[in-house]
């Protein structure tokens, strides 16, 4: 069977050509090709790694920013609160001052009114006394038109004096 018997010439040629091919390909084809593939794989890996690193950095930066923002917000709230408190305090103070002033004015007014009232009352009293004296004078004048009445009054006084 020619099909199953390897030809000597072809065997020798095959050994020669194939080994030469392996040598040539290894040196001139596979070395640069595999080298460039490896290099590319490494550069892709590096790119992926640095992207991952950048992502982490971004995340850190973002959390930093958030922290700053949060702090700023807290600061703002604090300042607002303080301002509100100060305003409240001033407001209260003003209110208290106003009240005190008003009270004082009222107090003074009351005192003035009191003195005025007393003066008026005194006035009224003296006037009443004067009127009373006038009335009494008029009455007495009226009553003492007759001698009898005068005598009676004098008697009364004397009686009273005696009693005293």
């Amino acid at each position: 069977m020619d099909l199953l018997t390897p030809g000597t010439g072809l065997i020798l040629w095959q050994i020669f050509v194939f080994l030469l091919l392996v040598f040539l390909m290894a040196k001139f084809a596979w070395k640069p090709i595999l080298g460039s593939l490896k290099e590319r794989e490494e550069s892709i890996q590096q790119a992926l790694d640095s992207a991952e690193r950048a992502k982490l950095e971004m995340a850190a930066l973002k959390s930093d920013n958030e922290k700053l923002l949060r702090e700023a917000r807290e600061e703002r709230d604090k300042i607002l609160k303080q301002a509100r408190e100060a305003a409240n305090r001033m407001h209260d103070q003003a209110q208290a001052d106003a009240k005190r002033n008003a009270d004082k004015i009222i107090e003074d007014a009351k005192a003035i009114i009191q003195t005025e009232k007393q003066a008026a009352l005194r006035d009224v009293k003296s006037q009443v006394a004067m009127f009373s004296l006038e009335i009494a004078e008029k009455l007495i004048k009226n009553n003492l038109k007759e001698d009898k009445a005068q005598k009676e009054l004098a008697d009364t006084y004397i009686k009273d004096l005696k009693l005293n």
Binding site: L3, L4, T5, P6, G7, L10, I11, Q14, I15, F18
Partner: peptide, 8 residues
């Protein structure tokens, strides 16, 4: 060819 496959 069997000679070729034999060498390989």
């Amino acid at each position: 060819n069997i000679a070729v496959t034999m060498v390989l």
